[in-house]
Write a protein that binds this DNA or RNA. Structure first.
Length: 881
DNA sequence: GCGGACTGCTTACCT
DNA sequence: ACAGGTAAGCAGTCCGCG
C-alpha cells in the first residue's frame, strides 16, 4: 500500500492537555446556572483564545468567503465562532494535467477560479498511484451548485470529488471531528487531547489478535467515545397557527395566518408559553404550574421574543421544524415586515437552520429506519409526534375536537405546551438517550449533528468512508467507475426484481418440538465482511493472482494483497462494540449512568455495523457496489449451509434456520460445543446458543413460529395473530392461546391444552356469530403507505376506506393508520366511523379467525371446523339452527 | 359473460 | 432511499368454455 498524503491544507497542531481527563465518560461535564444571555454581536463571538469547547457545526460563510466552526464553550456555555484562517478553499479534481485544464477557455476565464495544484493520490480501484490536478475555487458554488457554468459541469466527465458538500470537505481535510473538544489558541483551532483511562489503554494492549492498523483504529474510536457528552442547553420550540380550516395544515411558505402560540421548553427547567392576544377575545387570567404564561398584543413582538430565545441557545430542537415550525416562523416574520437580518432562521430546500446554534429536527431522526429498528427496537411505527411519544414516553398529545382558532387561551396554551414537552421528552428520556445516540454517531462517522439527524445511514457511512479516504490520501472513487469496474451481481435472487440472492431460509419441520436450542451467528454479515476482507477495492480487485481466491457461490474473488478499508473499519467497530462497550454495559460494578452510556454507544455502533452490508447494495450509496453486498450474503449462505452439514455429521437434529440461525432439537451439549468450535476454526466466525426454548411450534410456513421459554414466556414470530394490522379481537384470542401454550411443560399436558384451545376458538367464533364485539375490536388498522393519488394499479381495501373518509371531509395523509371493518355489500369495507355492527360480514371474519389460528392448529393437529363445532353438513352450508 | 387460475400489488413481518 | 426472503389478502386479468 502506498500511503500518499493530501496534506497541502492540513496543518497539524500539537495537541494540548485538557486538564479534565479523569472524569468518567458519559456524565455531564458541568452545569451553568442562570442562563438568559443578552444578544451579542457576531464580533463578540469570535475570540482569538477560547478554552475547551465542543464543535457544534461547520459551515461556509459566503460573506467572509471561508469555512467557520460553531463552538460550544464548556466554560461559559456560550456559542463562539472560529473562522478558518488556514486558507482552505473548495476544490475538485481532474485527471487532466494543469496545462490541459488551463487550455479550457471556460476554466481559464472562470470568475470563481483560484488556482491549480498537482496532487498524487492512490486509486484503490486500480491499485495504482494517480497524478491529478486539483482545481481550486474561490467559493463552493463555483465548484458546483450553480444552475450552469460551475467548474464541475465544465470538466464533466473528467472530474472527481466534486459533489462533496464543502463543509464536509473542509472537515475531512482539517481532521475536525464534530462533537469533540477543541480550543482556540492565538487564533488557531486546536484539538483538545483526550487521554484514555489506564483501563482503556490496558484493553487496547490486551488485543493480541488484532494487527497494528486495527489497533490504531480502535484507539481512535475509544478516544472519540470515552470523552463525555457535555450537558448543553437545549431549547425545544413548537408553534401553533390559527387557521380557519380545522383539519388542514397551514402552508408555511405562505404563512397567511397568525402564529397564536409558541411553546419554549428548555433543558434548564424553564417553560414558557407565548400567546397572541386577539382584539376580539380578551385575555384570560390563568396560571399553569411552573409555566410562564405570556400574552402579546402584537404578533411582531411575540416573534421578536421567540427570536431572542432562538438566538440564546446552542441547540434548538423541534419536531418537524424543517418543514413547518421554523419555516412558518421565517415566512411569517417576512410577511410582518422583519428585516432578513433580524430573523435568526435560514431556510434551504428541505431543512431550516438557526443563526448561532444548531437546529435538530427530531422528526427526521425518529423516522430514520435504522434508528427506528435498531436503536428503538421498532417500539413505535407511526411517523407522528403522537405515535412516537405515546409509544416511547407513554404520553400522547392533548386531543382537541375543534379548530385551533376556537380554543380558549388556556386550552391553546396547554395543547401547545404539551407538544413541546413531548418533543423535549423524546430528546431527553432515558438519560438523554436520543441526543447521546446522535453524538456517538456524529463522532464516529464525522457527520455534524445537523446533517446526522437529517441523513440516513448511507449518508453517515459515506462520510466515514470519504473522510478515511482523504486521511489516507486516497482518491474517492466515482459511482459510475465503481459500477463499471466492479460490475453487477452474479447470483439470481429468489424474489423477482431483486439484484442478487440474499439469506437462506431452511424449511421448518412442522409440529411441536421439545428442547430447542437456537444457535446464532454473531453479527453474521459484518463478520463476513471483516473475516473475508470485503470492501469495494478488494472484491474483484485488479490483481491477476487474486482471481483464484473465489467467494463460494459467486463468480467474485477477493484480494489477497491488500486489507480492505471497509473490512477494517467495520471490523474495528464490531470489535470495540463486542469487546468493550457491550461488556461494559453489562458490568454491574459500574454506576448506572455509566452503564447507560456504554449501552448507548453499543446500540449506536450496532446501527452502523448492521447497516454496513446493506448500503453496498443500495443504489444511492456513494460507494454502491453490488458485488460487495452479494459476496457478503453469499458467505452468509455458505456459512449456514456448511454449519448445517457439520451439525448433521455430528448427529444434531436441525429443525429450522433463517439466514444466521439454527434451531436444534434435543441438543447434546458436547456436540453443540464441537459445532461451535468447528465454526470458529473453519469459518472464522462466532456462533453461540442465543436462546433455549422448552418447545417450539412450527407449521410448514417459514418465518412463522411460536417458541416457549423455560419460564413459560412466549415468543411469537411472524404469525398473523401478532401483526399490528390484525383486528384486536383476533390478537386477543391469539394472545389467550399463547398464554395457554406457555403453561405446557410436556407432551401429556398438551392434550388438555388442545381441548382448551378448541374451546377458545369456539368461544370467539360464537362471539362473531352473535356480534358480541365492537367495531373497534373488529377493525383492521392498515397504514396508508403512499399518497392517495399514488395508488395507480389497484384499489386496496384500506384505500377504499380512506376514500370514504375523504368523501365525508376527513383529511387523510400518508402514514395515517386507516381503521376499517369488513361489511356486506358491494364495496365490502367501511371505515369504523361510518360502519355499524349489523352490516359486519361475519363470514369474512370467520375466515380470518381460521387463518389466524390455522398455522398453530395445523401443528397441533386440530381441525378448525371441528373446533368451532361445525359438522360436515354445516360446513357445506346446511344448518339446522 | 362467467368463474377459477393466475399474476401483481400492498402491507407487515423475519433475519 | 441499508439489503433480500416470506406470508397473506385482495384486485385485476387471463383463459377456457362450443
Amino acid at each position: 500500500m502506498r500511503p500518499l498524503t493530501l496534506d497541502s491544507f492540513y496543518k497539524k497542531e500539537e495537541p494540548e492537555r485538557s486538564g479534565e481527563v479523569e472524569k468518567p465518560p458519559g456524565i455531564e461535564v458541568e452545569r451553568v446556572e442562570g442562563y438568559r444571555e443578552s444578544r451579542r454581536s457576531i464580533e463578540d463571538r469570535r475570540p482569538s483564545n477560547l478554552g475547551s469547547s465542543i464543535v457544534l457545526s461547520v459551515d461556509y460563510d459566503g460573506a467572509e468567503g471561508c469555512a467557520y466552526v460553531k463552538l460550544y464553550s464548556l466554560e461559559d456555555s456560550r456559542v463562539y465562532f472560529w473562522y478558518d484562517n488556514t486558507g482552505h478553499k473548495p476544490y475538485c479534481l481532474t485527471d487532466m494535467s494543469i496545462d490541459e485544464v488551463k487550455r479550457i477557455p471556460e476554466i481559464a476565464s472562470h470568475k470563481g477560479l483560484e488556482g491549480f495544484e498537482e496532487v498524487k493520490l492512490y486509486d484503490a480501484v486500480n491499485d495504482e498511484e494517480k497524478v491529478m490536478t486539483k482545481i481550486i475555487a474561490k467559493d463552493p458554488l463555483s465548484i458546483g451548485g450553480k444552475p450552469s457554468g460551475s467548474i464541475r459541469d465544465i470538466l464533466q466527465p473528467r472530474v472527481w470529488e466534486a459533489n462533496i458538500k464543502y463543509h464536509d470537505c473542509y472537515m475531512y481535510d482539517t481532521g475536525i471531528i464534530p462533537c469533540m473538544p477543541y480550543r482556540i489558541v492565538d487564533g488557531r483551532l486546536v484539538p483538545v487531547e483526550v487521554d484514555l483511562t489506564r483501563e482503556a489503554i490496558g484493553f487496547i494492549d490486551s488485543l493480541k489478535d488484532v494487527d497494528e492498523e486495527e489497533r490504531r483504529l480502535i484507539e481512535r474510536w475509544l478516544k472519540r467515545l470515552e470523552y463525555p457528552v457535555p450537558k448543553m442547553k437545549h431549547l425545544v420550540l413548537d408553534i401553533e397557527v390559527s387557521s380557519p380550516y380545522p383539519s388542514r395544515i397551514p402552508d408555511p411558505r405562505r404563512a397567511e395566518y397568525p402564529i397564536v402560540a409558541v411553546a419554549l421548553v428548555d433543558s434548564e427547567g424553564s417553560k414558557r408559553i407565548l400567546l397572541l392576544e386577539k382584539h376580539d377575545k380578551p385575555r384570560e387570567d390563568f396560571r399553569m404550574e411552573g409555566v410562564s404564561v405570556e400574552f402579546y398584543k402584537d404578533e411582531k413582538l411575540l416573534l421578536e421574543e421567540v427570536f431572542k430565545a432562538i438566538d440564546s441557545y446552542p441547540v434548538v430542537v423541534s419536531f418537524n421544524g424543517d418543514d413547518f415550525d421554523l419555516r412558518y416562523l421565517f415566512h411569517r416574520a417576512e410577511r410582518l415586515g422583519f428585516q432578513k437580518s433580524d430573523i435568526p432562521v435560514t431556510l434551504s430546500r428541505d431543512s431550516a437552520s438557526v443563526r448561532y446554534g444548531i437546529h435538530l429536527d427530531l422528526y427526521k431522526f425518529f423516522f430514520n429506519r435504522s434508528i427506528q429498528v435498531y436503536a428503538f427496537k421498532s417500539r413505535y411505527y407511526e411517523n407522528t409526534l403522537e405515535g412516537v411519544a405515546s409509544a416511547l414516553l407513554g404520553v400522547g398529545k392533548i386531543t382537541i375536537d375543534k379548530p385551533i382558532s376556537d380554543l380558549s387561551y388556556r386550552e391553546l396554551a396547554e395543547y401547545c405546551l404539551r407538544d413541546a414537552e413531548l418533543t423535549y421528552g423524546l430528546l431527553s428520556y432515558e438519560g438523554w438517550l436520543t441526543f447521546n445516540l446522535m453524538v456517538v454517531l456524529s463522532r464516529v462517522t464525522g457527520t455534524i449533528l445537523e446533517d446526522l439527524c437529517r441523513q440516513g445511514v448511507s449518508g453517515w457511512i459515506r462520510n466515514m468512508l470519504e473522510r478515511e479516504h482523504r486521511a489516507r490520501g486516497w482518491l474517492i472513487p466515482r459511482r459510475e467507475d465503481l459500477l463499471k469496474f466492479k460490475g453487477g451481481a452474479t447470483t439470481k435472487a429468489v424474489i423477482e426484481g431483486k439484484k442478487y440472492r440474499g439469506g437462506h431460509v431452511i424449511k421448518p419441520e412442522p409440529g411441536v418440538h421439545f428442547q430447542i436450542a437456537v444457535l446464532d451467528f454473531q453479527s453474521m454479515y459484518p463478520s463476513a465482511m471483516q473475516r473475508y476482507n470485503l470492501s469495494y477495492e478488494t472484491v474483484r480487485c485488479s490483481h491477476e493472482e487474486c482471481r483464484s481466491n473465489i467467494i463460494p457461490g459467486t463468480a467474485h474473488w477477493v484480494c489477497r494483497r491488500r486489507k480492505g478499508v471497509t473490512s477494517l473499519l467495520i471490523g474495528s467497530l464490531k470489535d470495540i462494540r463486542v469487546r468493550w462497550y457491550k461488556s461494559k454495559a453489562k458490568d454491574k460494578s459500574l454506576p448506572q449512568s455509566l452503564r447507560d452510556w456504554y449501552s448507548t454507544v453499543s446500540e449506536s455502533l450496532k446501527v452502523l455495523i448492521n447497516a454496513s452490508y446493506g448500503v453496498f447494495g443500495a443504489e444511492n450509496f456513494a460507494f454502491y457496489c453490488p458485488p460487495v453486498a452479494e459476496a457478503t450474503a453469499a458467505i452468509g449462505r455458505y456459512a449456514i449451509e456448511e454449519t448445517i452439514k457439520e451439525a448433521r455429521r455430528l448427529g444434531l437434529h436441525v429443525i429450522y434456520g433463517d439466514t444466521d440461525s439454527l434451531f436444534i432439537e434435543k441438543p447434546d451439549p458436547d456436540r453443540v460445543a464441537k459445532l461451535i468450535q468447528w465454526v470458529r476454526s473453519n469459518l472464522l466466525m462466532d456462533i453461540d446458543v442465543d436462546k433455549v426454548y422448552r418447545y417450539t411450534v412450527f407449521s410448514m410456513r417459514k418465518k412463522n413460529y411460536i417458541g416457549v421459554y423455560e419460564d413459560g414466556s412466549v415468543d411469537v414470530k411472524g404469525l398473523t395473530g401478532k401483526k399490528r394490522n390484525t383486528p384486536e379481537f383476533l390478537k386477543t384470542a391469539f394472545a389467550e392461546m399463547t398464554k395457554l401454550l406457555g403453561q405446557v411443560t410436556n407432551d401429556r399436558e398438551f392434550e388438555d391444552v388442545k381441548r382448551r384451545i378448541k374451546d377458545l376458538v369456539r368461544k370467539y367464533y360464537m362471539k362473531l356469530k352473535k356480534k358480541e364485539l365492537t367495531l373497534e375490536e373488529l377493525a383492521f388498522k392498515i397504514m396508508l403507505g403512499k399518497p392517495i393519488e399514488a395508488y395507480k394499479k389497484t384499489t386496496p381495501q384500506h384505500l377504499k376506506a380512506a376514500l370514504l373518509l375523504k368523501s365525508i371531509g376527513k383529511e387523510v395523509d400518508v402514514g395515517d393508520i386507516i381503521s376499517y371493518v369488513k361489511v356486506t355489500g358491494k364495496i365490502g369495507v367501511k371505515p369504523i366511523e361510518l360502519a355499524s355492527l349489523d352490516e359486519i360480514d361475519v363470514a369474512k371474519y370467520v375466515d380470518h379467525l381460521r387463518t389466524t389460528f390455522q398455522p398453530i392448529l395445523e401443528a397441533l393437529d386440530i381441525d378448525f371446523n371441528e373446533a368451532i363445532g361445525l359438522s360436515q353438513l354445516d360446513f357445506y352450508g346446511f344448518s339446522f339452527a
